[in-house]
């Protein structure tokens, strides 16, 4: 997918089975929304194939839309429409909608049900937007940053709701840049960076991607780190290096310590142990803040 000469999503290949919660995880601007919108039929890929529930989202858009529920990152309702009125309207477009009251109740929209959309708070808009995605009893739900701007309570309500959806047989595809959200909610996590898929797996698999690692933060820049066998070295910044791979042993730890001695580098921290999802994420996507992909 390109916008002008920017490549937003590049040779991204992934398959999501039915009945799971799948998280597309990545920093802002790496192509998460573009990926989702390509599945929803908003954009036609310049290359490659997209199939959603076996349908082409652009050519068979009309056949697909009754089956999916979409939560946009922002907007989606008239400024003057009342919250419950918007839900009622969308319910009328579907054959077997959920009762509006049920969603109003579950997402605590009762107190703002008669408030025009433009006067809702950010969190209320998010909750309404989620309700709008659920109203048609979809079998596949696309939710873009579902809990952005929500308070802690609303966040947990949303997570519980999405888990309940999965238990009832729906499939949920969500984008997020919150690691804890992916870790707590998703059955499978797809990490993308600069429009490419860099890792896929369950949260625990990704955590175990390199089960043990050594993390060295020096008080001085780590210049001229030597090569170690069967070890991958990720320079997070000029003072931080993460060592992963089969070669991560106590022997390596000793070698690093003696290298520090030789180079007169004083370790600020030197840790040996399990990495969490955040470290996997950082080592996979780099820590730079370069946004959307490279030039075509």
């Amino acid at each position: 997918m390109r916008y002008g000469d920017k490549v937003a999503v590049d040779h991204l290949s992934l398959q999501i089975p039915r009945g799971v919660i799948a998280a597309v995880l990545g920093r802002n601007g790496v192509g998460k929304t573009t990926t989702l919108e390509t599945c929803e039929g908003y954009r036609r890929p310049q290359q490659g194939t997209v199939r959603v529930l076996g349908l082409d989202p652009v050519a068979q858009h009309h056949d697909l839309t009754p089956h999916i529920g979409v939560m946009l990152q922002e907007g989606g309702a008239w400024g003057g429409v009342r919250a419950t009125e918007m839900l009622t309207h969308l319910a009328r477009l579907h054959a077997h909608p959920l009762p509006v009251d049920l969603l109003v109740d579950r997402l605590s929209l009762g107190e703002c049900g008669r408030t025009p959309y433009r006067r809702l708070s950010g969190g209320q808009k998010q909750r309404l937007s989620l309700a709008m995605a659920l109203i048609g009893r979809p079998e596949l739900l696309f939710v873009d940053e579902p809990t952005a701007g929500m308070d802690v309570a609303a966040r947990h309500t949303t997570w519980d709701l999405l888990r309940e959806l999965r238990e009832d047989g729906a499939t949920v595809v969500l984008t997020t840049h919150y690691l804890d959200e992916a870790e707590a909610l998703a059955d499978e996590v797809h990490i993308i960076d600069a429009g490419r898929l860099v890792a896929s797996g369950s949260p625990s698999e990704l955590g175990a991607l390199a089960a043990t690692s050594i993390r060295l933060v020096g008080k001085q820049p780590l210049t001229a780190l030597p090569e170690f066998t069967a070890v991958r070295v990720d320079a997070v910044d000029e003072r931080t290096a993460v060592f992963t791979g089969e070669g991560v042993t106590m022997g390596l730890l000793a070698a690093i310590v003696s290298w520090c001695e030789e180079q007169e580098v004083t370790p600020e921290t030197l840790t040996f142990g399990q990495r969490d999802l955040e470290e996997v994420f950082l080592s996979l996507t780099g820590s730079g803040d370069d946004a959307v992909g490279g030039a075509a």
Binding site: R92, H94, R137, E139
Partner: peptide, 19 residues
Amino acid sequence: GTFTPAPGGARFARKVLAQ
């Protein structure tokens, strides 16, 4: 369950009138 999928669009005339 509450959210067991039951997807489908309403009849065309109903959708147009709602809109």
